[in-house]
Amino acid sequence: MNEIWAGLEAAFWLIITLDADLVEITLRSLHVSLSALVIASCIALPFGAWLAIRRFRYRRTAIAVLNALMGLPPVVVGLIVYLLLSRSGPFGVMGLLFTPSAMIIAQVIIITPLIASITHQAMRELWSEYHDLLISLNTTRRQRIVTLIWDGRRALLTAALAGFGRAIGEVGAIMIVGGNIDHATRVLTTAIALETGKGDFALALGLGFVLIALALAVNFMIHALSRTEREGTW
């Protein structure tokens, strides 16, 4: 019990005094997950919207695959990315393994299906609501997409935030492809795992508080967004 109290106190001081290690690790976590978020959003938002609007032959299959991909265990994604990037793998020559880039790649693979799936659902609902009106007003395809994206912007933001939440808290994949190297690929989650293992609860708890704060902030924003949507206060 004493050990935990001492850890909490030390953690508190680390945060108050902006401990160099803590700041560095936090910033790297943000860098990796935000990069993954931007890349994944660039792929997933248009893809999800496109899936909702276009009718094509293998649409149902595509949606089923997307939903299946959402359930991919991150550890397995890590393993696959590791094999692809390892020295003997197809992309080995690029030397990306154990760099932040490898971690970004793994996170992109993990969160793209999630963002695309949420986007698809929201856009499909909006499209079925607007369909007759937009057809009646003789909109061009471009005008339709712009209208759907604009009026569905809260849902899209929610999708992105959900993706970010998943990325920032993920540990299995980035541990494998990043290697948790000090001052290179150590991020919040992998550092917590390591420090806990070592029994250094001060830093682990300090990092844990930062992670919880980030996760809470993300969920609070999602909640606020869905509330403004429900109450129609925009």
């Binding site: 609501e129 607007y130 007759d132 009646s136 007003l137 003789n138 009026d151 129609g232 925009w234």
Partner: peptide
């Protein structure tokens, strides 16, 4: 011909926007 027609649906379809934006929409197009 398409532009010269307008349709009011049996159950009104409202854009998730303000009254002003709903009225402006067909003209903006």
């Amino acid at each position: 011909a398409r532009r010269a027609q307008a349709y009011v649906f049996q159950s009104p379809i409202m854009l998730r926007r303000s009254v002003r934006a709903n009225l402006a929409y067909p003209l903006q197009l």
